[in-house]
Amino acid sequence: MSIQATATDLLTIEGLGHVYEGTEPFEAIGKLDFTVPEGAFVSIVGPSGCGKTTMLRCLSGLMKPTRGEVRLEGEPVTGVPRDLALVFQDYSRSLFPWRTVAGNIAYVLPRDLPKAERAARVQESLDAVGLGEAGAKYPWQLSGGMQQRVAIARALAYRPAILLMDEPFASVDAQTRAELEDLMLAVREQFGMTILFVTHDIDESVYLADRVLVLSKSPSTIVESLDVDLPRPRDQVSTRELDDFVHLRSHIARLIRDQSMKGRPAA
């Protein structure tokens, strides 16, 4: 199930760089070059503040990068492409407090969707994240982890072809996290989505992905791009026991440690 050589590149990122203007301009992204094949699951790890959120905003077309280009199926991305969804890192502020949980999800579905199907999709996606009972509540009546899952459910109900996720499991407990990881693998199989997944958790990045991109500190570049050739379907226990898994995670952990040591006075 690794990335096939024949798979076409869905996303092409070429010379992407971003400088935040202001009184003190800040170069968040140095130069990124990579491609994402159709149907791939790509994890992105890197130190905090290295520009992962910035990168996702550029990829999704929400923000115009100051340098370089993002192409989707060969076409330059100018606005947010149809069929693309983004789960924001700041999940609580991306949910609409004036709508119920179910309302938040239903509202992003296309207008012409029949009512019954709309309701079915809302319920289905809520069930998938384990919030089947919470539809009538308001987001502010839920815990942080539950709100995060609502944001995930909303993106899933939208059924995008490309799903960008910005540390989507940051505030859920370990058990729920494992369930959500397997959910992501399942929906990827079921709908053939292409997923870009930003995370702080190295094990998670390896467990989920076909490829892991390790970013450097700002201005960020790609330190290494690792193909993950672990067998699928993956399993929370046995996959994590494989030698390959252990080696990969250790290797990435070392890369990240080296990154964060850089620039610090030697001990």
Partner: peptide, 28 residues
């Protein structure tokens, strides 16, 4: 909230949804 508007852009809100679904309720 800027993130609400960004959410609207991600999910392809047309101007009606943006106005009645985000701007008006936020300002209400």
């Amino acid at each position: 909230e800027q993130l609400h508007l960004d959410t609207g852009r991600v999910f392809e809100f047309d101007w009606r949804k943006r106005f009645f679904g985000i701007v008006l309720p936020s300002a209400s």
